[in-house]
Each structure stands twice: as structure tokens, then as C-alpha cells.
Amino acid sequence: MAQSPDRPKESPSQTAGPYVHIGLTPNFCGIDGVYASDLGATMVNDRTKGERIGLRIRVLDGTGAPLKDALIEIWQADADGLYNSPSEMRGAADPNFHGWGRSPTDMETGLCSFETIKPGRVPFRDGRLMAPHITLWIVARGINLGLHTRLYFSDEEEANAQDPILARIEHRVRVSTLIAERQGDAYVFDIHLQGEKETVFFDS
């Protein structure tokens, strides 16, 4: 017998369930007066640097129906490609941009909206630049462990073509599942949980 590494294991995940709003967006579901506002509801202010964009996201199940009880969190760099995080060692990010947002899908339409800025490029591990992207984390009833993916932008074709993560996708036809289409000042992005158009999800 050898010594055991004897490390604690990560707590196993469980679904966020259909009432996730009570805990994470209580004002959205009518629980007023406990918190002044829902965390992550506002991402930009007048002083935030960068191009204002909207994100219009839907999450679709295996029949193509939009989830009306999902919740999405996004995490992104500022306009200069810096993260507002203690682990960011390259410099101070825009103090007027936290970089994190949270939004439930609409209970009637399933549409999930964010008003944010377009992120700058962030280096990959070897120093090459990744294409501008936003990290998404999706939870809902029926999802046992939060799903991790990225949103890239349709008007960044050249950068997308050089992106080291997109380059890792073996079946090239699936790359398009991570690219949001520009419509005016907003990007439209459908996340397919399963089926032919299934979005690429990450283990990272």
C-alpha cells in the first residue's frame, strides 16, 4: 500500500430546479424587499468603456422548445481584454465593468437578455489571442450540472478563424453552434441542449 492522496472531493452538483429564481433573482419572481436588486441584472453604466451590445439568448430542449425556467450567467473581459478578477495578473480592468451578469429566461417567451459591452481579446495559454468571446453557464430544471459554453461573434470572422478553442472542435460543422448572429446592436444566440444542432459544451 502507498500513501493515499486523501483529498476531499468536489461537492457533487445537483439541479438548480424550477424555482432557482427564489435564490438567485428573487425580485424577478416577486420576492421584494429582501435584496435591493437582483445580482448581476445591470452590467454597464455611463462610464463603462466599450461598444454597447445586447445579447438575445434562448435555450432549446431536445424538441426545439425554449426553456422558460432556465437561468444564464455570463462572464467576460472588458473592452481591453482584461478580467475584473483577483486572478487577472496583466493589469487593472475597467473599474466600471464587473464582467459578470445573470439573467433568467422569460417565463412566457423563454428569451434571456443581457445589455453589456463587446469584450476585447484575451490571450490563450501560449500567448496567441483568442477571439472575442463571452463565457456562458446555464442551469435549469433537468440540468444536473451547470453547462459551460462560449458565445463568439459573427462579425469577428478573422479572429474566430484563428481561435485556439474553436480550432479544437473536430467536427467543423459544429463550430457555428458557438457563433451568435449580429442583428443591429444585438447578437442572437440559440443554445440547443441536444439533437442535430446541439451546441458544443465544454469540460474545462
Binding site: 478578477s85 487577472e88 463565457t135 478553442i165 465544454f202
Partner: peptide, 24 residues
């Protein structure tokens, strides 16, 4: 509920980049 809400294709694995190493 997991039947129609579970991905069926393999996840894409990669070592963390700054986008996963950092957090709010």
C-alpha cells in the same frame, strides 16, 4: 426532465484558459 435537457454529444475538453481561471 433530464431526458430532453441533456446533451448527447461529448463535451469539448481543454485546460483552463484565463476565461475559466478568473472569476467575479
Amino acid at each position: 426532465s433530464s431526458v430532453l435537457r441533456s446533451p448527447q454529444k461529448a463535451l469539448l475538453s481543454f485546460d483552463n484558459t484565463l476565461s475559466e481561471l478568473t472569476g467575479p
